[in-house]
């Protein structure tokens, strides 16, 4: 649609002023791109240099002899494969848990009536204002009491309650017409049946959006794994890159290689699902 608008504008108004303005817009847009992307480019470039060259001619972004061995060294020094697997496990299970819980709750808030519904929804909204860090100590104590510290379950359970997800899905579900639900109800379909067969398929875009966000959030989370996981075999990638920030012998090219490796899966996911990210973000802001 934007393309169409742009094309028609190109045919009708061909004034110099317009061309100049478009040019200026592009210059500004590109300037922001450089600012945004440069650190990442420098990171990749640094990951292919050695300790002596990384800060010599540091803006020479294409190393003459790329040192791919930095990557194999990272892989050899710490069990990165295990860290990847742990991160995938935690992210996927957290996401699944929070999606199930959030969509069930969102359905109740959007489509069912029960006493105290609006107050409860407000309570859910209010908890979005509570920073997790303010309650991290009691959370730790509780999970420790459940014997779940040093398990991935701690992280998965902490993500079960997701007020943001409930809010996002509720806003989406409330727009859906009730006709289908009503007729299904008359046909004798149960609430769970309606939820599973009618509402969920319709809510797919919102669920996917929420899914990619939760996935991303778990993947990038550092503080919770830092607190709850103390055993190497349980570590996530965020803890893994800490191995390279050492007291003795910290090595920038290796740090950059490890960091690059931690970012690659996220970049891939983002490129495939970028539409959902951008739409999801837009929904949160404008429907608040």
């Amino acid at each position: 649609m934007e393309m169409a608008a742009e094309k028609s504008a190109g045919i009708t108004g061909y004034s110099i002023k317009r061309i100049l303005r478009t040019f200026l817009v592009y210059v500004l847009l590109l300037a922001v791109v450089v600012l945004t992307v440069l650190p990442f480019v420098w990171m990749v470039s640094g990951s292919l240099k050695n300790q002596a060259t990384i800060f010599q001619n540091t803006m020479n972004l294409i190393p003459s002899e790329p040192l791919w061995s930095n990557y194999s060294e990272v892989w050899n020094r710490v069990p990165f494969g295990q860290f990847y697997w742990n991160t995938i496990k935690v992210s996927v299970l957290s996401t699944a848990g929070s999606l199930i819980a959030a969509s069930l709750a969102a359905y109740a808030f959007a489509k069912l009536s029960f006493p105290g519904r609006d107050k409860l929804f407000l309570l859910f909204l209010a908890t979005m204002m509570i920073p997790g860090q303010a309650i991290m100590i009691p959370q730790f104590t509780i999970l420790n009491g459940m014997n779940l510290v040093n398990t991935h379950w701690a992280l998965i359970l902490l993500n079960l309650f997701n007020p943001y997800g409930v809010f996002l899905l509720r806003q989406f579900l409330i727009q859906l017409p009730n006709d289908l639900n009503e007729s299904a109800r008359i046909d004798g379909c149960s609430e769970f049946g309606i939820f599973m067969r009618i509402v969920m398929p319709l809510a797919k875009p919102a669920i996917v959006t929420l899914g990619v966000f939760s996935l991303l959030w778990s993947w990038n989370d550092f503080l919770q794994p830092l607190i709850y996981l103390s055993q190497e075999r349980l570590f996530t990638i965020q803890l893994g890159i800490r191995y390279f920030q050492q007291l003795n012998g910290a090595n920038y090219p290796l740090i950059m290689a490890a960091t690059t490796m931690s970012l690659i899966p996220i970049i891939v996911i983002y490129l495939f699902a970028q539409r959902y990210f951008i739409e999801g973000i837009a929904i949160t802001g404008t429907k608040g």
Partner: peptide, 25 residues
């Protein structure tokens, strides 16, 4: 079972393991 922890996070990891009651460390 060997566990090697990044030096900078070591003290905290030991604390967590000490507080979880024995099976972990």
């Amino acid at each position: 079972n060997q566990n090697y922890v990044p030096t900078s996070d070591y003290i905290q990891k030991i604390l967590v393991n000490l507080s979880t009651g024995g099976g972990d460390m």
